[in-house]
């Protein structure tokens, strides 16, 4: 019934597809942000590291590089379940409602085939050209994370879950 609606008019009542906008917002965040926090684990102890990363076009994968002698490398070799956090805090320092964040869950695999390393290194270097020598170093491992789910948080409390397909 329409009686009640005019008192409290909606500026816009239409229901556009939320799917599309959330997917775009996730994509934008992945593309705009260069760094994020990787969580690895070992014997019940979580361990976080700040890393530079790049995403695949379909957002099914994240790629990063790490020196092989690091703690995070040894942890992810033993347990491939990881979580990753990225956010836009640095560009929205004063407003909790403007901050959005993405919690990513997935499994990592250290790349060993030359072609695969080359393909993913290119994507990583494409986003972080200054990391080229680091990525190409023999002491560096290129790690690929297969994403299971994205948990997208915006406006302080709104949370959406998205599985790349």
């Amino acid at each position: 019934m329409r009686y009640d609606e005019p008192m409290y008019i909606d500026v816009e009542k239409g229901i556009p597809s939320e799917d599309e906008s959330i997917e775009t917002e996730i994509r934008n965040l992945c593309e705009e942000q260069s760094f994020g926090v990787l969580a690895t684990q070992g014997e019940g102890q979580p361990y976080t590291s700040l890393i530079g990363f790049a995403s695949s076009q379909d957002l099914k994968y994240l790629v990063f590089a790490t020196p092989k002698e690091t703690r995070k490398f040894s942890l992810l070799e033993k347990n491939s379940h990881v979580s990753f956090l990225l956010d836009n805090r640095s560009t929205q320092p004063d407003s909790i409602n403007q901050v959005s964040a993405l919690t990513v869950t997935g499994r990592v695999r250290v790349l060993s085939e030359k072609e695969e390393i080359e393909r993913w290194s290119k994507i990583l270097i494409g986003k972080h050209p200054y990391l080229e020598s680091f990525v190409r170093s023999d002491t560096t491992a290129v790690v690929l994370a297969e994403v299971f789910r994205y948990f997208y948080v915006r406006r302080f409390q709104e949370v959406f879950e998205w599985m790349p397909q």
Binding site: V153, R155, Q157, E158, E161, W162
Partner: peptide, 10 residues
């Protein structure tokens, strides 16, 4: 079926 699942709304 939705690809996006809302987990928390405000």
């Amino acid at each position: 079926q939705r690809k996006i699942k809302a987990r928390q709304l405000t």
